[in-house]
Write a protein that binds this DNA or RNA. Sequence first.
RNA 1: GGAGGGGUGGCCGAGCGGUUUAAGGCGGCGGUCUUGAAAACCGUUGUGGCGUAUCCCGUCACCGGGGGUUCGAAUCCCUCCCCCUCCGCCA
Length: 422
Amino acid sequence: MIDPKLIRHTPDVVAEAMRRRHKAIDLDMLTALEERRRAALSKVEVLKAERNAVSGQIAELKKRKEDATGHIEAMRRVGEEIKELDEEAHIAEAEFMQILLTIPNLPDAGVPDGADADDNVVVRTWGEPTQPDFPAKPHWELAEALGLLDFERATKIAQARFSLFVGLGARLERAILNYMLTLHATQHGYTEIWPPYLVHPDSLQASGQLPKFEEDLFRLREGLYLSPTSEVQLTNLHRDEIFEAGALPRYYTAFSPCFRAEAGAAGQESRGLIRQHQFDKVEMYKFVEPERSMDELESLVANAEAVLQGLGLPYRVVLLCAGDMGFSALKTYDLEVWMPGMGKYVEISSCSNCGDFQARRGQIRYRREAGGKPELLHTLNGSGLAIGRTWAAVVENYQQADGTVALPPALHPFMGCATIGG
RNA sequence: GGAGGGGUGGCCGAGCGGUUUAAGGCGGCGGUCUUGAAAACCGUUGUGGCGUAUCCCGUCACCGGGGGUUCGAAUCCCUCCCCCUCCGCCA
């Protein structure tokens, strides 16, 4: 959530930010609601002050066994007025908040203009795109030949767009997860978390999925949701908390399966592991002091890059343009891994600085100094990485002419073998 | 899932519907005393909104959340959530 005060004090800044995002919002409506709320509030407070004072007098009179019916009658009328004005203020505020919760974060000044993915900027490339001297196959063909994936049975068990790993394919998924978590927990200073997979709507509102993106989520009869990313759980780890001075930064990493209804995504990337209703992901998350968050974004990206470098997978780093960024982010880098079988770069990580956007929605604060006022902190999140897509990248990049896969050394200890197939 | 008991400030813990705009204690902060410290004593203490107002000032709200009764609610009523104890079920 953006700072509500911006609506009143610098509406032009908000309007410009929304223009950059190619999002239309009704600022006049917001301003009017805020005005209504404040008008009702200032009126009702005068009346409440009067009621408090006269109530004291009534108490005095009653204590002395004197008549107070005049005061009581007057306060009855005041009470009715208070009730009406309170309601007016509540309604105006509720409507204001309802709209404010659907307004995306303001893009950082360092974010390029642009409407969609075509306007993103490649900031650097690592490694040479693998081009084997034989026709490279996509991972789903390799996996079928090696018996590593069984989409048909996954569909029978659940539905289309679910996956089922078999044998060394299943072990590879587990090995990648282990490799990533171990790297972040032991080399990058992140505290390891194993979170619940179901989340409360309050948690989804704090991280930004609700109320706007309900249709992308799986909801249970009980009112809980299947988490679409452990960013949700990690954001809410410290919801409604205040970090004492010196307690920041805090780094967390978590594994979780991620569930996405992907409404409206039918037809895209229908083959292989790229786009599924359920996928595994290791997430990195940071709670930091505001002035450090841009530096922290760079090191977060470096931590995600280390995963790919450790696996020897070629990739590039892309700075998203204002129109392509996610709802909660003010600046985002995507990591795109080279997939020789698919013949293109595919997004495998998204690292964002959310500024105080999530912190405000979740009331996550810190004290700059001992005894100081609580202030909103900044949060960052990044995939480290999407496991299924990493699985696909490993299989495609390390395929051999004979159809086997020669695994990168970093995975050998977690796999207990060096090759798949053959 | 069933039965019972509870949710009060950073923590513990009082609180007949009206000097409680929450007693008392602990902790924290400031001070007196002391060579220094401890002890003792004195003072102080949260969050948010509004007022052109991050501090000061004024005011309103906040005793798990929401709603209601009342001139007036921490206190009474309804509802939801959470915690504890016991029982049941279960990996």
